[in-house]
Write a protein that binds this DNA or RNA. Structure first.
Length: 287
DNA sequence: CTTGGGTCCTGTGCGC
DNA sequence: TGCGCACAGGACCCAA
């Protein structure tokens, strides 16, 4: 999936399109994504004016004038395509592939006032959409257990140390746990651990306070750099239509098995499997 | 309680 | 060129 930076980039792309506009029509082209769409999904959205576009963890939150929130998750392979009234289209932080006109996986179309439309595409259908009342949001099952945002003040070394204390599993698994910190995924966990010089296999509870103090800002830095890269791709989004949304040219370890460590330590990047997911790391720089 | 594995689904890329 | 297999950004669910 798009991880936090990609979802943030998508939100920034959607914000000026949605905000203040009426959702005139919603076309749902299949009965479900990961789960069935809620009852009366389209009807509950149609005629509503969007007041705000935001993000929590990897969820896109589109707040409506009636204080309901359209919740969108992109799963592993979701992307959003925007059709402009003049016929141009672009994909903010598009992922996975350029459909090249293949619309088989265009599952939902939001038609907005003024001729704009927003198309949700997700080949693997691990994504989801739901509608949640603003007053129910905090306690909603999707959000009740989600941990602090990594870019916010609540996520700090003291907090993380507390959460890792006593944990025996590898640090990598814990950073992927959305209840500990929201929004990290497989790529940026690998990247952050590399930047912090921490082995992905280190037992979470044994990492010293000093190293956690280094890890927290490295997580932030990796995410912020990726958001910046996404933001710059937004500026000329029309010409980058169809390009990969992950900013992989700047990954230091992810998907670089066998390549030389960029720290020039002489070691090669290794790939291992943890909890069924690939982990990339430098065996020399990360301990 | 924590932890690990299987699962949903389609598409891509590799080796043979 | 074709086929089969491994693997892919997530996260839920259940067994141990």
């Amino acid at each position: 999936m798009p991880e936090l930076p990609e979802v943030e980039t998508v939100c920034r792309g959607l914000e000026p399109i949605f905000t203040g506009r009426c959702i005139e029509r919603v076309v749902v082209r299949r009965p479900n994504l990961r789960w069935p769409f809620p009852d009366q999904f389209a009807t509950r959205l149609e005629g509503q004016i969007v007041t705000k576009v935001g993000r929590r963890a990897k969820y896109i939150l589109i707040t409506l004038g009636n204080d309901e929130i359209l919740v969108i998750h992109l799963g592993m392979s979701g992307s959003i395509l925007i059709h402009e009234p003049d016929g141009n289209s672009h994909r903010p932080a598009s992922l996975y592939y350029d459909s090249g006109g293949d619309d088989r996986h265009d599952h939902v179309v939001f038609e907005l006032e003024g001729g704009w439309s927003v198309i949700y595409n997700d080949p693997r259908r691990f994504g989801l959409m739901d509608i949640v009342s603003l007053k129910d949001f905090e306690g909603h099952r999707l959000f009740a257990k989600i941990g602090p945002e990594p870019l916010g003040n609540e996520f700090n070394p003291a907090y993380l140390s507390t959460r890792l204390n006593g944990r025996k599993g590898p640090i990598k698994s814990h950073l992927l746990d959305q209840s500990i910190v929201a929004g990290l995924g497989n790529i940026y966990v690998c990247e952050a651990l590399f930047q912090a010089g921490i082995s992905p296999q280190a037992r979470a509870g044994t990492i010293s306070g000093k190293r956690v103090e280094r890890l927290v800002p490295e997580i932030r830095a990796v995410l912020m750099a990726a958001i910046d890269a996404g933001g710059s791709s937004l500026n000329d989004y029309v010409q980058t239509d169809g390009e990969l949304g992950y900013f992989q040219h700047q990954f230091k370890v992810y998907d670089r098995e066998g390549e030389s460590c960029t720290n020039d330590c002489g070691a090669q990047i290794k790939r291992i499997v943890q909890a069924g997911r690939s982990t990339f790391y430098c065996p020399k720089c990360q301990r």
